[in-house]
Design a protein around this nucleic acid. Structure first.
Lengths: 212, 212, 212, 212
DNA sequence: CATGAATGAGCATTCATTCAT
DNA sequence: TATGAATGAATGCTCATTCAT
C-alpha cells in the first residue's frame, strides 16, 4: 500500500480516494487515446489496475466518470486561475497568464487536454448539463478580466467582454486541438505549443488594446 | 464508379443522387441533434424516409456517412472560399469574408455547423484520417491569405501564418460552439452570432495589422 | 419457409406471428424447466431457434415475455371457461367443468401449468400488476357460478362465493403443483391427476351443497 | 453439529444464535417484500444491521438463507402441528386446528406466510431438493389425520387421504395468497382471513364427512 | 467474530449490418 | 433498387462472494 499520505486526513470525498484518483487518471488516458464512446469500461479498469466492478464503487456509470473528470480538473483550473489573476497587477499580464495556464496545463497533462478539448463535445445531453456550468464559469472569469481592463481604459470598449472571452478560449482550444491532432503518434513538442501561445497572446492583446 | 443511368449533372459517385442527398441531409440533422455516437442508423433512415438497408446502398457504413458529410460540405466550403478569396482585393476584405463564410455558413445551415464543430471531435481514429486532410487544407488556405498579407506588408511578420490561421479557426469555432450551446432549446439568434463575428474580425485584424 | 398458413390473414398482432408464437412456446418450456429467474434470454432464443435479438422484436424485455404468456394463455382459458359455463345446465356440472378445465388444460400442457402455478408467484411488482387483473377475472367467473347456485338454492348460503372460489382455485393449483413436483424427472401420469380432480370435485361439491 | 459455547437451549447449528436469528428474520421480511430473486444479500444485511460478509458466517450462500428459513419455520410448524393433533380428540377438531395453524401462523407472522407461499415456488432446482422433503412431511401429517378419520368411520372412504391433504393445503395456500395479494399496499385485515378459514373448514369437513 | 471494499463472472439488451424477398 | 426482419457480437452494469484487516 506504500503511500498512505498521513492516513485518514486525505481530502478525498469517500475513503479509497486513492483508487478513485487512479481510475480518474486511467480514464483520462484512455479517453484521450480512444475517445469517450470507443472506450470500454473494462479498458479503464484495466488501465487503472482494478476490477470492472470497482469503477462502480466510485462512479455512477461511465458517463459519470467523464463528468467527474471535468468537475475535478476544470474545478482545479478555475481555482488556480482565480489565484493567478489576483496576483497579477496589469490586465496584459493577467491575460498572458490565462493563455499560459490554459495551454500550460495542457502542456503538462496532454491527455487531460485532449479529454477536455475533444471529449467535451462528445457529450450527451446529460453531460452537457454538468459540463456547461463549469465551462461558463471559466468563460465568465476571463470576461471579468477583460471588462476590468475596459474600465481601466487599457482595453478597447467596442468589443464585448464575453465575445472576447469566447474568442480567446476558442483560439486556445483550437491551437491545442490542432497541436494534438498534428502529431498523431509522435509525442508532440511542448515548445511548439508554447511558441504558438506567445504569438497568439501578442496578437490578441494588440487587437484588444485601446486605441489612442 | 458504377455511374449507371447516366445521371449526369451531379458529380455524385453513384447514381441515385437524390436519395443519397436525402440521407446526407437527414444525417446532418440527426447528428447535430444527438451526436454521432448517440445516433442510430435507423434514425437516419427514418429521418430520410428510407429503409435501414437503403443506407448501405449509398454508404459503406455509419462512419462513412459522417466522412462523406465532411467531404461533401467542407469540400464545398473550400471551393467557395477559394472563389471568394480570389474575388477580394485586400487582405482585410479576404479575412472578413473568411469569418463571414465560416460563421455565415453556419447561420444558414445550423445543423451542419454543429456536425462540423461538435462531431469533428467525436471521430474515431479512422475518421480522423479522412477528416483531417480536408481540415488541414482549409487551414492552409487561410494561412496562405495571411502569408500573402505579410508579403504585402499589410500584416505583421512576427506571427506565424499557420498559428494565426489556427487561432482564427479556433476562435470562430469557439464562438459557434458557445453560440450553439448557449441556447439549448430555443432557436438561437443569428444576429447575435453575426455581431460576434464582426467584433472578433475587427479585433483579430487590428491585432494582426503591421505596426508602423 | 415451408409454412405460411394462409399467408397474411394470421390473427397475430404484428406480422411474424409465427415467430412470436414459437418464442412464446419456447419460453413456456424453459420457464417451466428452470423458473423465470434462472432462465437466460439466450436459452429462450435457442429453444425457439431464433437469435437473441429477435426476442426483442416481439417482446419489450424478459419480463414482458412472462406477462404475455399470462395474457395469452389465461386469456384463452377465460374465453373457453365462459363458453363452457354457458353451455352447462346445472351448477354441479359447471363446477365439474371448471375443475376439469383448470386441470385439463394442464394435463395437455404441462409446461404451461408449471409456468402458471410456479411462475405466477415469482413475479416482480410490475408483473403482479399485469397478471393480477386477469387472475381476478378468473376468480370472479367462478364466484359467479357459485353465487348463481346459491340463488337457485342448490348451494349453501353460509359460504361466501368469493371464498369458495378462492379455495377451489387454491386446491386445484395445489393439486397441480404437487402433481408436477411429485415427479421431478419422469413424465407424470395424467390419469393420476384426473383421478385427483374427480375426487376433489366430489368432495368440494358435497361440502358446498345446500343442506336440507 | 459443532455446538460450541454450550449454547444449550436452541438446537442451533452454530453458536451466535442471536445474530443468526436476526439475519433470518430480516431475510423473511425482505424476501416477503421483494421476493427471493429480487432481494440483494446486501439488503438482508442492512435489514439485519450486520455487514454483508457476516451473512456468510452463518449461511453457506443466499440460497441457504431461504433453505434455513424453511427448515427452521416449517420445522417449527411441524412440531407444533404434531403436538396440537395429539391433543385434540376428534378428527374434526384436528382438521380445524390444522386450518387455524396454517393460516393462524400466517396471521401472526404474515411475512413468513408470504415467504412460504410465494417463495417456495421461486426455488431453484437445488432449493426444491431441500424444501420438498419437509413439505412432503407436512402433507403426510395431514393425510395421516384424514386416514385415521376414515378408519374411525367419521370420514368418507372414497377420497384418497393424500388427495384430500393436498387439496386442503392448496386451498389454504390459495386463500393466503389471494388474501396477501388482495391488498397490495394496505395492511390486510387478519379477521378477514380468519373468517375465510372458518368457512372453508366447514365446507371441507362437510364434504369429507362420511355419508350415512 | 465482524467488516465492507474489492472482485469478476454473468447477463439483459442494443444496434450496425446483412440478405431473402 | 429497395425493403425491414433477422441476426449475434459486443458491452455496461449488477451483485453474490471473498478476504485482508
Amino acid at each position: 500500500m506504500a503511500e498512505k499520505k498521513g492516513s485518514s486526513a486525505k481530502g478525498g470525498k469517500r475513503a479509497g480516494g486513492d483508487k478513485r484518483e487512479r481510475i480518474l487518471q486511467a480514464a483520462i488516458r484512455v479517453f484521450a487515446k480512444n475517445g469517450f464512446y470507443a472506450t470500454r469500461v473494462s479498458e479503464i479498469a484495466k488501465a487503472a489496475g482494478v476490477a470492472d466492478g470497482t469503477i462502480y464503487l466510485y462512479f455512477e456509470n461511465k458517463d459519470d466518470v467523464l463528468v467527474q473528470i471535468f468537475e475535478d480538473r476544470i474545478g482545479k483550473l478555475l481555482e488556480i486561475l482565480r489565484r493567478v489573476i489576483a496576483k497579477e497587477e496589469t490586465v496584459e499580464a493577467r491575460i498572458r497568464r490565462i493563455v499560459e495556464l490554459q495551454l500550460g496545463l495542457l502542456e503538462e497533462e496532454r491527455d487531460l487536454a485532449e479529454v477536455i478539448t475533444v471529449n467535451l463535445r462528445q457529450s450527451s445531453r446529460l453531460l452537457k448539463q454538468y459540463a456547461a456550468p463549469l465551462f461558463t464559469k471559466y468563460l465568465e472569469l476571463i470576461a471579468g478580466v477583460i471588462a476590468d481592463g475596459q474600465k481601466e481604459g487599457v482595453l478597447r470598449r467596442d468589443v464585448s467582454p464575453r465575445i472576447a472571452a469566447r474568442s480567446l478560449w476558442g483560439a486556445l482550444d483550437g491551437l491545442a486541438l490542432t497541436w494534438a491532432l498534428g502529431t498523431p503518434e509522435r509525442k508532440p513538442d511542448p515548445a511548439t505549443l508554447r511558441k504558438a501561445a506567445t504569438q497568439f497572446a501578442t496578437l490578441f492583446l494588440d487587437g484588444l488594446r485601446a486605441r489612442d
